[in-house]
Design a protein around this nucleic acid. Structure first.
Lengths: 229, 229
DNA sequence: TTATCGAAACTGTTATAACAAATCCCCCGG
DNA sequence: CCGGGGGATTTGTTATAACAGTTTCGATAA
């Protein structure tokens, strides 16, 4: 496997390095809901002073990825079933809303990257590696959004993923689920290849809604949030 | 006019007070695109040290409402026509995506508030007060989103408004535009009243798209971003 | 007059330290 | 054995000061 990203190369101010690291941890589900993140502990762990981690935590709070407790200590939020359902609904809305643009604008490189990502995901699924599966799934969907080439889209979706991470964490999809996800992704890719936005959208919707019950506790009333009443 | 919000009551940490103030200034279009916001100037203006304003500016940056210049000074971003179009597209997508929920869940109080807001907006339009018009328009649309009762929705829309503020600022709608907006809003309200999501959505789309050319420079290809191809 | 070099003023960044508030835990009384 | 009270500890917040980078402006030379 070629080195696509050798290493993000810890560049820029410390608070941004901390921010990137914590963001990635959040999205990857390395933090549990309800977990508290004390300033001094993190600072010590990273070998910096309080200020950079304080900056990073505050930014994450304003993104909604963390919440402040009564004592102002940052905590990764516990989401109610309704909140989890709304989270998924918004993600579905955004992703289905832009996949038409992705179908039009996707480059060959986009297709190749997404395809490779999905074969990796399927491999993880077959080997039962849920952690790798979830990480690959995240990358696939973020790549999908990137292919749409819409400014500010990542800025909307990433915070949703950060909130989703802890939710996905304590949920173990079985092999059948994971393989089904890979199938959906294949269907999405076929749609993108043929520049058939509608087909890709249908597959995407099926993909998101398939995993929804497990995440929300079988909530999510209407399938599509608002295509036409 | 009854005192709905006597005063947000400067509560909480300083950095949050600063954040709220700057956010409001951004959304209201009190800052111009390209304007730089030096730490020490703002700190002196508000009578605090650097740290609280630094925190606030950093949070705004991570929301995308500000961008850091080469010298790390924060600046309100200059948006390209494409960026402005995408901004509007995303706003339209989100607002139309949730207005169905608003039509279902809106309370009587929601209707009353929105209606009052719109009469105020129309009054501002007739008297040619564009600042008041824009402020009322903002409150109307934010109220619309609030009526949908979808968690995290404000967290997605507010950053868009913050980026839109400076764009709207240096654009002076004529009286006809403003009055037309009030008409669209009336149509939206009629839709909400009858719990007719489709009608409300159509009026909302017309509302947003009507103002789009002036904001983007006549961009915005397809009307609805992705209902059905 | 214009271009260039250099210094001074300004920028955000980070660490340290003092502070206030909330929390935790142990001890005492029931 | 259980419930409260109170002090010690831990929490985030903010200011100050030292730092490094950039920008800017003036003087000098072509």
């Amino acid at each position: 496997m070629p080195d696509r990203k050798p290493d993000p190369a810890p560049t820029g101010p410390l608070h941004e390095q901390v921010f990137r690291r914590l963001s990635a941890d959040l999205m990857a589900g390395r933090f549990a809901a309800g977990q508290k993140l004390p300033l001094r502990a993190l600072a010590a762990e990273m070998g910096t002073s309080l200020m950079p981690v304080r900056d990073a935590l505050q930014r994450l709070e304003s993104l909604g990825a963390l919440v402040g407790t009564a004592g102002r200590t940052m905590m990764v939020p516990r989401l109610s079933p309704e909140q989890r359902a709304d989270l998924l609904r918004l993600r579905l809305m955004l992703e289905t809303g832009v996949i038409g643009a992705a179908a039009e604008r996707r480059s060959e490189a986009d297709l190749a990257d997404l395809s490779e990502e999905n074969t990796g995901m399927r491999a993880a699924a077959e080997r039962g590696d849920t952690a790798a599966f979830l990480a690959a799934n995240l990358r696939f969907h973020r790549g999908l959004a990137a292919a749409a080439r819409i400014h500010f889209l990542e800025a909307l979706l990433d915070p949703l993923w950060m909130r989703l991470g802890p939710v996905v964490r304590d949920q173990t999809p079985d092999r059948a689920n994971m393989l089904r996800t890979a199938e959906y992704h294949d269907a999405i890719l076929r749609g993108l290849l043929r520049r058939d936005g509608a087909a890709a959208r249908a597959a995407l919707e099926a993909d998101v809604l398939d995993g929804a019950p497990a995440l929300t506790g079988a909530l999510l009333p209407g399938a599509s949030p608002a295509p036409q009443d």
